[in-house]
Design a protein around this nucleic acid. Structure first.
Length: 230
DNA sequence: ACCCAGGGTCATA
DNA sequence: TATGACCATGGG
């Protein structure tokens, strides 16, 4: 797993995720980017900023019709209006970031998942990128990549796949580190952060749904027959 | 014209 | 548990 990471890093370079000004903006982005290109999300966030409503209270209480207009460029604007307001109401009820940041990761994930509109990936985006918890985010790109490399069954349940990847990376870091010592939290957070960003960059670049990985920088690691030949 | 994007929910069997 | 329909804009 670490070998794959190194290859992706050498191939695509540092990615500097997550674009967003502070934890709350990151969480808003996590909801808006559901099945949506990030460039479209940036426009919607720009609209929210320009309107001066990029804050939990303002988003939670503003008229849905107005919010929907601002979210239009992000697509699914009616669905996302409902989801974002659900989330912001919950966020305010729990006392905001200053309160939530003290919660243990398991409890925080469970609570996030209880919000209608926040699923596994969105919750884990928030946990990793906003709360800096050591959580490996699984998305469609990740499934596709590890599946094509023959490292994981592509249709494993979300938490099963996440647990597998986390366990593998922790084990490899322990073996690599002096004295077989387990990796620290900050080390894991920065690795998971950059790894997920690299997988997305790689997915956008060459590792598309239709396999045409002829000049993919991981092509030599794929089992024969899983990628198109040049 | 077609494919795809940093998913999730709900109804149905 | 496991499918399928649905949501909607914008870039290549």
């Amino acid at each position: 797993m670490l070998r794959i990471y190194q290859r992706l890093y050498d191939c695509h370079g540092p990615q500097h995720w997550w674009p967003g000004d502070g934890p709350f903006e990151i969480m808003v982005g996590a909801v808006l980017t559901q099945n949506t290109a990030w460039s479209n999300v940036e426009r919607a966030i720009g609209n929210l900023k320009a309107a001066g409503v990029l804050a939990p209270r303002a988003l939670a209480t503003m008229p849905a019709a107005r919010l929907a207009r601002l979210l239009k460029p992000a697509g699914y604007f009616n669905v996302k209006t409902r989801r974002l307001q659900n989330f912001c109401r919950w966020y305010g009820e729990q006392g905001g970031y200053e309160s939530l940041k003290h919660w243990p990761t398991r409890r925080l994930r469970h609570a996030l998942l209880s919000v209608n509109g926040v699923g596994h990936e969105t919750a884990d985006d928030m946990l990793l990128y906003a709360f800096e918890r050591p959580v490996f985010v699984i998305d469609a790109y990740t499934r596709r990549l590890f599946s094509r490399l023959g490292l994981a069954d592509g249709d494993l349940a979300y938490d099963a796949l996440r647990g597998m990847v986390e366990a593998a990376l922790e084990a490899e870091l322990s073996r690599g580190g002096r004295g077989g010592r387990p990796p620290g939290r900050r080390r894991l957070v920065s690795l998971y952060n950059e790894y997920h960003a690299l997988i997305v960059a790689h997915g956008k670049d060459v590792c598309r749904p239709r396999p045409r990985c002829a000049d993919c920088c991981l092509a030599d690691l794929c089992p024969a027959g899983t990628v198109d030949q040049p």
